[in-house]
Design a protein around this nucleic acid. Sequence first.
DNA 1: CGTCGATGCCGGAACGTTCCGGCATTGCCG
DNA 2: CGGCAATGCCGGAACGTTCCGGCATCGACG
Lengths: 356, 356
Amino acid sequence: MGPTTRAGRRAAHDAYDRAVPQDRQVTIITVANRAGVSKTTASDALRGSGRVSEETRRLVTDVAAELGYVPNGSARHLRRARTGTIGLHLPEVLPRSDYYMSFVFGAVQAAADHGYDVTLLTSGSGAGATAERRPRVDGLVLGDPLAADPVVEKLMSSQLPTVTCERYPGPGDPDGIVWSDHGAALRELLDHLAAVGTLRPALIVPGDESDWAASVHRTYRQWCTERGVVPLTRAVPFDANADATSTVARNLLTDEPGLDALIAAPTSAAATLLPVIREAGRRVGDDLLLASCVDGPAMRFADPAITAIDVQPREAGAACAELLFELLAGAVAPGVERLHPIELNIRESTRRRNAP
Amino acid sequence: MGPTTRAGRRAAHDAYDRAVPQDRQVTIITVANRAGVSKTTASDALRGSGRVSEETRRLVTDVAAELGYVPNGSARHLRRARTGTIGLHLPEVLPRSDYYMSFVFGAVQAAADHGYDVTLLTSGSGAGATAERRPRVDGLVLGDPLAADPVVEKLMSSQLPTVTCERYPGPGDPDGIVWSDHGAALRELLDHLAAVGTLRPALIVPGDESDWAASVHRTYRQWCTERGVVPLTRAVPFDANADATSTVARNLLTDEPGLDALIAAPTSAAATLLPVIREAGRRVGDDLLLASCVDGPAMRFADPAITAIDVQPREAGAACAELLFELLAGAVAPGVERLHPIELNIRESTRRRNAP
DNA sequence: CGTCGATGCCGGAACGTTCCGGCATTGCCG
DNA sequence: CGGCAATGCCGGAACGTTCCGGCATCGACG
């Protein structure tokens, strides 16, 4: 049973004890009455605003604690013209789930620290009262906004303060951007591969709907040009499942016998390629190096462990929320960009290369 | 800057038009004035309550649409003493992430269909204004509540209408339960293994903090007793990573040479065991059968594909939210339990067994 | 023709908070 | 002793919605 019955609501009020909470919700007036002060003073005392003597302040907070007073969010937000809530949108990409899960938890954590709630906005909301469903939030965090996503498009044009994780490839700019230098990290990875003797590294990467994929792709081509290497890439859909990725990899291995290293960009894609590679008669970490652009449990615990770029999703989520709060507080000006550090973890799968 | 400029909002207003919204928010009074009716009538017209002629109703809705009126959630909820939001709690278990991601999206989807928002409640909120942070929601959905989780404990005793996915092993009962018959599914799996000639199936399963794990464990032992098979289980932590699971499996394979089938309960654990098994010189789907209690992408695309129980997480999340709304509406009585269908998917990894 | 119910609409009063302005009281300084 | 600022506290008025009761109007019916 949730709430107990609401019968007896009209129970006789003792005219002398004005503080009887009966079974009604305990409001700030309950607290004020019990403490023998006005609601204004109670409010000021609890929030540390206005001018209240230390003595009264303590009294009021004690009474509030005793009564178990919890301020009514709706009333507060109505008065303050804020909702105390931020919206979080993520592409619904299950194969990428551990990344986004971490991201979510980071954002929620940061929001909680600021007294904010996080509500989730999915792309699948569809049908319902579309007009009605304008999100009632103070601001938005968009994780990996895709160019094609209609929900993202709508949110981006919603007049709400918005922070994106990675740039938005579509029209319009968010008020804040948290981004990581995937290009630099990938370059480091490519240099490392070259250093251990790789001559023809190939790249499996999603299309350019996401800024992350686009910059990975771009960097790869640049690096190839600089080094005089013939680029070798295969595109997969952003939400490609392991099956699609495997097929692509299989073809790549068959068609390009000169291939000596494989970089699978999508989260956890690299791990699912291990069987494919083995089937093709290649040995990972030996005559074929393997790496991923997104680290995760699957990389760390694969056999052999796979070199990958740790993009620190949890911290990224938190950073996005933090930046949004600073924007909401006016502490930073719109248009700000913030760099989120990532790092390359070199593991067995690329330790050294042996000729086939 | 995200939002386009706010200038020009004050476009010349006809002085006789009482609807001048200035640059203020467009409220129901704006709509009422513009439509030439009272706020009550406007409210009634928009919500279909009260007595309003069809003609005025249409007029009001047209005006509202034209002005882009969006009702203020805080005001509405303040008046109605509801928040229009449900809270969702999940154990923060990243290795199980694709399951929970699906669950979340299902719940959000269902909530959106009912005009509700979903806010996330994490176990890690810790520090902050702990007293203050009582969640402002109308009800709770707890996915896989763990016996040990202090946040779950607090939420369970919060007097809020609560639905759990799977039973809560701790003290107290939720108002609604959505559960699946993991026992029956596991039994089906075990029978299948026996049918293809398995004599000694082992089970790797988390401890009994979760009802799911407990029932899997219980069923396994019962089945063993019935069949006269010596049970062989190993426990891992609920949030065991692939590393821990692999170690357990390795030991199992070394210590128990008679082992001819392995069931790894945790999500995606089975897939990460493939290399371990291969190292031990066993062949999956041949002289060692392998299955998982939770299906997912990793199972479907493993090589060989792994037999697993599809627990339909997205539908489970939606079902939890649905049940909660029915409880909130008083359509069902507290204490209700609802069975959520799951099914066994038999794949290559257990198709038939060959002697070693 | 008087009455009565149905119909369409409306004005106020909540809901619980915050915030603006104001009123005593006190202390300080010239 | 008079003015004046600082201090502590307070009463109302918002915020935008819903809902209760009431007031006309109108047609029907006896």
